[in-house]
Every structure is written in structure tokens, then in C-alpha cells.
Amino acid sequence: MRVLAAMSGGVDSAVAAARAVEAGHDVVGVHLALSAKPGTLRTGSRGCCTVEDAHDARRAADILGIPFYVWDFAERFTEEVVETFVGEYAAGRTPNPCVTCNEKIKFEALLDKAMALGFDAVCTGHYARLSVVDGVPELRRSADEDKDQSYVLASLTPEQLRHAMFPLGGSRKPDVRAEAAERGLAVAQKPDSHDICFIPDGDTKKFLESRLGQRPGDLVDAETGAVLGKHTGVHGFTVGQRKGLGIDAPAPDGRPRYVLALEPVSGTVKVGPARQLSVTSIRADRAIWPGERPLNGPTECVVQVRAHGGTAPAVAEAVGDEVRIELREPLRGVAPGQVAVLYRPDAGAGDLVLGSAKIAATA
């Protein structure tokens, strides 16, 4: 097959490309230039898609002996990922930009261009297992539970998954680094990227305020309605947040307060005790079924609401474009805007992704 290997400049994508070459595919490497400031340099494990990353990707491609190109997707990345991120926070929701990036950039913009150029598949360094059985994609958790990225891939359509390759799905990260060293890849010990790639200093509140300005409002006790303080914008908060609330007086019982709800129209941030964070019911919309199989009636599953953690057994049911989820065990800090991914536990084979949907409301 003709395979386009997306090479971020990290160890995972370099080894994924190497395995595609070793499997006999006709491989071409491509690095996506996503930064609107191409002079930006990486700082340790913060940031990605930088000049340094592009150079690392090119050196890896040279060692593998494959053609290499840099494609400028900065404008589309800004529109699809950055602006969506800012808009969601302004609306009082909590987005996951990695989900958006995979959906809109790596497996929409990139895959569409690859198909137009005659490639058969796009290869990435994601940790997830993928197979196609009788033409139907099956996306599962990776062998390395700590690195599993099936959550951020669960919003891909069946057609996108049919043209995807995840060579690292059955591997563990230490083994991938060892393989990179054996292959002579200089990125073997390069730190993994953390946090949000377009906020390299990690200060999300400052970034959002630079885009949205200050939108003052009240911090309100959800139980009594008392105004506890002022804030500079609901975009500086997320449901479940405890630190940085700016409340001087302690709660009457001396226990910490948490953000319970955001009301962007009135500018109100409601806070209260931890017990009020518990969620037992989720309503989500914009459902996607990677395996082309919408739920057939109430279905026992495991739901995950964050990229790392936030899982609970549940019963889910598809109602039109919505998914209604009743949790067997409560989850805390579930926020509108997050993605709910449904898994079917499969012993020994890695949990199968049943579908995903965007959280609209909780109870």
C-alpha cells in the first residue's frame, strides 16, 4: 500500500513509520506545520509542532530512507482547533483539543489530502488497536494502558478508520523507545509532549483571557445563593475545579469548595461542596459509531469522560443522535463539552470502542 506517515517529530510516530516501511509499504513521511508562529521552539515536554520537531521528523525520515515533506496546516488548525477551543470555553464548556485535532486535522484534513494524492492509508504513532473485520472497523484500547489513546480517536468515522494505521497498538512505550534506539533514531529519548500544544507555558487561563478579554461576574454559593467573590470570566474555570477560585472566606464547614456549574450568559460561577460534583446521569449528542453499529437498546458498557481516568460502568442507550447514559457508579467533575466514550470490555483483546458523543448535560 501507499502509506502517508504523519511524523510529529516524536519517538512514537518515527517508530510507527519505521514499522510501516518494514512491513513493505511504500511510505512517504509528512510533518504538519500547525503553529502560527513557526519560530516557536519546544521547551522540554511542553509544546509540539515546532521548528525543532520538524527537524527531528526530517532526520528520522532520512534514517528510514523515505521521502519527507512539510505541509502547512496552520490556518486550518487555528480555525478548527484553537478557535473551537476558545469558543467552547466562552460558552461555559470544557473541550478536549486533542480530540478535535485528531478528528479535524489528522483524520479529516490530512486524510482527505492523502486520498486525493493516491495514498491508501495514513499511519500515525497513536497507541490504539485497530482492525477491520468484514469491512467494519474495530477500534480497541492499546496494550499499554498507561499510553492508550483510543479515547481521542473515538470520534473518527468508520471511513476514516478504514484508511488509518496504528502500528504501535500492541506495544508498550519502553519497548518503543528501545526499538527507536536500535534503529538509530535520535528521538529515542525525546520527552513526550504534555498539556495543550498551542499553550506551551501551560497557562490556559492567561491564554483564554488574551483571546476573550475579561468578562467579570460573580462567584456564587450554589446552596445559599450568596455572592462569595468576583471573577474575570467564566472561561477561567471548569467544572470540578478546586484551586484558583479566588474565594477568601472558607466554607462554613471548613471544607473546600469546587466549581459546580458555569453560566456564561449571566457570568455566574456556582461553587459548592465535593458531594455536589457527583454525576449519575449523562446526556450526550453528536454521536459517532466507529464500527457502524449504533446501540441496539440499553447496553451495558464502560464510559470514559476524560482522556486519562474518569471511567465507570454504565448502561447507555442511543436515542436518535443522542446517547443517554446511566452510571452504575457516580463520577465527579463531569463537564459539558467533554467527550463520553463507550467501551465494551473484552477480556484479553482490549476494550472495544462502541461509540462516542459530546456531553451536553449531567444530573
Rank of each mutant, 00 (worst) to 15 (best):
E300T: 10
E300H: 05
E300S: 13
C301R: 00
C301S: 05
C301F: 00
V302L: 15
V302C: 15
V302N: 12
V302W: 11
V302S: 09
V302Q: 02
V302D: 07
V303E: 06
V303F: 13
V303N: 14
V303R: 15
V303Y: 06
V303K: 15
Q304G: 07
Q304A: 15
V305H: 09
A307V: 07
A307P: 09
A307H: 15
A307K: 15
H308R: 15
G309K: 04
G310L: 12
G310T: 14
T311M: 08
T311I: 08
A312V: 14
A312P: 10
P313D: 04
P313T: 10
P313I: 06
P313N: 12
A314H: 05
A314N: 09
A314V: 14
V315T: 11
V315E: 01
A316Y: 02
E317M: 06
E317G: 10
A318P: 05
A318E: 07
A318M: 05
A318Y: 02
V319I: 06
V319A: 13
V319R: 10
G320T: 01
G320N: 03
G320Q: 01
G320V: 02
D321C: 07
D321L: 12
D321W: 02
R324N: 07
R324M: 06
R324A: 05
R324E: 08
I325S: 02
I325R: 00
I325C: 01
E326L: 01
E326K: 05
E326N: 00
E326R: 11
E326G: 00
E326W: 00
L327N: 08
L327S: 14
L327A: 12
L327W: 11
L327G: 10
L327R: 14
L327H: 13
L327P: 13
R328C: 13
E329G: 00
P330R: 05
P330G: 12
P330D: 07
P330S: 10
R332L: 11
R332G: 14
G333C: 09
G333V: 08
V334D: 11
V334A: 11
V334N: 13
A335C: 07
A335I: 03
P336E: 08
P336D: 06
G337W: 09
G337T: 07
G337N: 08
Q338H: 10
Q338S: 12
Q338T: 13
Q338L: 14
V339D: 07
V339W: 10
A340W: 06
A340Q: 02
A340I: 05
V341W: 01
V341M: 06
V341F: 00
L342C: 05
L342S: 02
L342F: 01
Y343P: 01
Y343M: 01
R344E: 05
P345W: 03
P345S: 13
P345A: 09
P345I: 10
D346Y: 00
D346L: 15
A347L: 14
A347V: 14
A347F: 06
A347K: 11
G348P: 04
G348F: 04
G348N: 09
A349T: 02
A349N: 01
A349K: 03
A349L: 08
A349C: 00
G350T: 03
G350C: 04
G350Q: 04
D351M: 08
D351I: 03
D351K: 11
L352C: 03
L352P: 03
V353Y: 02
V353S: 02
V353L: 06
L354S: 07
L354F: 05
L354W: 04
L354I: 11
L354V: 07
G355R: 02
